[in-house]
Design a protein around this nucleic acid. Sequence first.
DNA 1: AGGTACTGTGGGAGCGCTCCCACAAGTGAT
DNA 2: ATCACTTGTGGGAGCGCTCCCACAGTACCT
Lengths: 351, 351
Amino acid sequence: MASHGVRGRGGGRPTLEEVAARAGVGRGTVSRVINGSPRVSDATRAAVEAAVAELGYVPNTAARALAANRTDAIALVVPEPETRFFAEPYFSDMLRGVGAALSDTEMQLLLIFAGSDRERQRLADYLAAHRVDGVLLVSVHADDPLPDMLAQLEIPAVISGPRSAAETLTSVDSDNYGGARQAVEHLIGRGRRRIAHITGRLDVYGAQRRVDGYRDALRDAGHPEDELMIEAGDFSEEGGRGAMAALLERRPDLDAVFAASDVTAAGARHALREAGRRIPEDVALVGYDDSAIARHMDPPLTSVRQPIEEMGRSMIDLLLAEVADRRPPASRELDRRQVVLATELVARASS
Amino acid sequence: MASHGVRGRGGGRPTLEEVAARAGVGRGTVSRVINGSPRVSDATRAAVEAAVAELGYVPNTAARALAANRTDAIALVVPEPETRFFAEPYFSDMLRGVGAALSDTEMQLLLIFAGSDRERQRLADYLAAHRVDGVLLVSVHADDPLPDMLAQLEIPAVISGPRSAAETLTSVDSDNYGGARQAVEHLIGRGRRRIAHITGRLDVYGAQRRVDGYRDALRDAGHPEDELMIEAGDFSEEGGRGAMAALLERRPDLDAVFAASDVTAAGARHALREAGRRIPEDVALVGYDDSAIARHMDPPLTSVRQPIEEMGRSMIDLLLAEVADRRPPASRELDRRQVVLATELVARASS
DNA sequence: AGGTACTGTGGGAGCGCTCCCACAAGTGAT
DNA sequence: ATCACTTGTGGGAGCGCTCCCACAGTACCT
């Protein structure tokens, strides 16, 4: 019998109070049960659970958030202005991992775009209002002020792809260095001798690490150093095409190329075709990401697979841990965590 | 200065009350100002706005949600269990449109996965708790109970890709029928006479519409009907391959194929290659979606582009309108809206 | 017997808003 | 001058929770 002050509420969903009345206990006890407190007798717990089931009670998140000063939500912030990153399988794979990890919890996932200035401002207000318990950061550039803002607001955050070796935030990354080594060692194993590298955007730490891996793999195999075999790309197809053309000009005798991304490799492939080089007979080609493009390229592209879904999972695990044990930031810095996950080479016909 | 009852709150963010004190007005007045009520004098409004700026006040969403019984959040529900859909550019493009449309509002976007049974259950609880003001539904199958659940809970919802011609929810879709016609008419224009079609999953309404478009385009061009030229696929690469093989067996003289998706076309391409048919010399190939795969295929694939980003935008616009004017469901049914956006053929070397 | 320590429980206070009623002050018709 | 509105404003009540204090009951020491 909906009684006093019914404000057109959607059919009067049951409240904690009603559950308490039904179970013949106090409000506090119901709260303890639904929050899994151990300080409740078994009999009482059973009675409350029965009442919850009978009434179809679902806690009101807003009330809980207001009273407990937490939100049970985390945000995934996508700072990319040009949403290039966004269209890559990278994004959806990570989302899948994040979603899977989250489905074990009560946490909700908010998607926040911070490309434009206005979106940035909105994000800043949003974070200032502490409307999420934690933040997942992907694809952040070295000069982005976001991580510092987060640190200042003391909002737990995990970043995918550390900005540098000195990353202060908890981070999850794939082994860019090792992945590059795998690619180059694979090419060496295939008998290639003059292996070039088209880099990614070098303001991205992971791209730098791939260059390091490329260099070290060659050095360890006793190959002479040759800076002319390295050309800067920017992860784009056009960049790959241009870089490949430059490399062919400088080192027409090259017999293999390791590209910092599959899209870059696709660009390189065009340039190679135009120059009349066959893949893999004349020039072997290896990409990075193992995206759909790699599988559908002609010939199919050998590529380095990152365990992206697993990275998403890891990020959630780390973030939830930080949210849970909310320590003073001082101590937090001591055991900051940098997780690095192994990559895997997927060999195909291009090499 | 922090006085009574400070519960370790994060540095005491200012409240409505504090803004009111600072501006020398009452709480109600501040509330009116921040909610844009017209019933405030200009002088008072200015004073309140100044106080808001000085204090850096940001409203507490939880309190607002609790008091006003709304959440200022909408959910994007992804019901796909196998997240195939998810890896398609389709998803990220739509997300981009949704994000763009949303950035003009105060609404937040929640991403909810409803693949597994557990996720389903969580979603049901979530919706029952009215934790979002509206729901965006993508990639919903004909037998999914979700739309009905939404209707019963009276939660505004917009669906992308109506489940049938009799869709009861507000929907946004691209013109599958027209897109298929464009593809077939393009092939006819190129002088092709024996045009086959590999369908998508026929339990998806859009796939049916593409078949209709294919049929009508041929009929209108005076081509004889030939059911043997149609083979069922399932949007997958493997399905495309198998369907192509079957078609070649039945109609070895076919000279063109319209595939219901780019991925399907990629599968068809493999089968054609294996059969020794050249593309486009022997058989012209047209796909659907204009995904990255189409651009990177060899030869590049002619494909039908859907205005997906625009669809995302439209969905948000429609949903927010429904959220805003919360009418009784009865009247809502009368002017339910079905928006259909035009497609565009992107001609490439495969046809 | 008295103390101390727990365990389980009830319920007051309060989280920061919105809603709405009350009311002061101004405006115009009667 | 009286009444009836309108406009702008203040502040009480209440949204549904969590937190925490108080307290009854039981158990185990001295």
